[in-house]
C-alpha cells in the first residue's frame, strides 16, 4: 500500500462538545480517489474540512460556496489559485493589470471548463453553473498533489459534470470529493465512504459497490 496521507483513529470530528462524526476511523492514502456520499447534513463537509486541515502538500480546493470574488474577472479568480507562488508585488501587478503571459497561462483551463470568451467577465455576472466551473478552473490551474471538492459539479448538467470530474482525475493524483450523484461517484471513485447518522456506514472500494449497495445511505 502507498503512504498514508491522513489518518483518523477513533476521533470525534466537529465542534468541541458537539461532534458531527464520532469515533471516526479513516485513513487516506496517496493516489486514492475518495468520494464521500450521504444525505445533506450527514457530515460530508465537516469531514472534508477535517481532511483539509491535515492533508500535507499542495492542495487545491473547490468549496461548496465556490469562494469566488464576484467583482473580479474569471481570469482573476482562476489565477487566484496560484497567489502563494508569487510575491505580493507581483500579485498586485497582475491584479491591477493582468499580464499577457498570465492570461495565456489561465486560458487553457478556462477553455477546459468551457468558459472561453468569458475571461474578462466579472464572476458576479455569471450564472450559477458558470461560477462553479470558474471554481473548478481555479483548482485545475492551481494543480498539486490533491484536490478537495465539496459538491464540485452540483450546478452543471450530468454530461458536463462527468467531463469535469474526469478533468480533475487527470490533473490530481489524490482526490477527495463530496458528491450527491451516486452514478458519478461510482464512475469517479476508487473508494467510497458513505456517511449516515454521524458515522461511517460504508467504506469500500468503488468496484465492489453498486447503486443498490449505496441506497441504505439515503433511507
Amino acid at each position: 500500500m502507498t503512504e498514508a496521507l491522513v489518518r483518523f483513529e477513533g476521533e470525534d470530528i466537529g465542534w468541541p462538545g458537539q461532534p458531527v462524526l464520532s469515533g471516526l476511523h479513516l485513513t487516506l492514502h496517496a493516489g486514492e480517489r475518495l468520494v464521500l456520499l450521504g444525505r445533506s447534513g450527514a457530515g460530508k463537509s465537516t469531514l472534508l474540512s477535517a481532511i483539509r486541515d491535515r492533508l500535507p502538500g499542495r492542495i487545491a480546493l473547490i468549496p461548496q460556496d465556490h469562494g469566488l470574488v464576484g467583482p473580479l474577472s474569471v481570469h482573476h479568480n482562476v489565477w487566484m489559485g496560484r497567489l502563494d507562488d508569487h510575491r505580493s508585488a507581483y500579485n498586485l501587478l497582475n491584479l491591477v493589470r493582468p499580464l499577457a503571459r498570465e492570461r495565456a497561462a489561465t486560458d487553457p483551463v478556462i477553455a477546459e471548463v468551457g468558459l472561453s470568451g468569458f475571461e474578462r467577465r466579472p464572476v458576479e455576472a455569471l450564472s450559477g453553473g458558470q461560477r462553479q466551473r470558474t471554481a473548478l478552473a481555479r483548482a485545475l490551474f492551481r494543480g498539486g498533489d490533491a484536490v478537495l471538492g465539496d459538491e464540485p459539479v452540483s450546478a452543471v448538467d450530468p454530461v458536463q459534470g462527468a467531463a469535469l470530474l474526469e478533468a480533475l482525475t487527470g490533473r490530481f493524483q489524490t482526490l477527495v470529493l463530496a458528491l450527491h450523484d451516486r452514478e458519478a461517484a461510482l464512475a469517479t471513485a476508487t473508494r467510497i465512504v458513505g456517511l449516515k447518522d454521524g458515522a461511517v456506514l460504508i467504506d469500500a472500494p468503488a468496484r465492489d459497490l453498486s447503486l443498490e449497495a449505496l441506497s441504505p445511505l439515503y433511507d
Binding site: 473580479l72 502563494d84 508569487h86
Partner: peptide, 29 residues
Amino acid sequence: VDAGAASALPRGTGTLSALLWTRLPLAMP
C-alpha cells in the same frame, strides 16, 4: 465581506495578497 473567498485561497498566500485579491474587491462597491 463573505469570508468564503478568503478561506478558499491557497494556504501560503500572504496577508496583503489575500486582502487585495478577496476582501478589498468584495468590499469595493
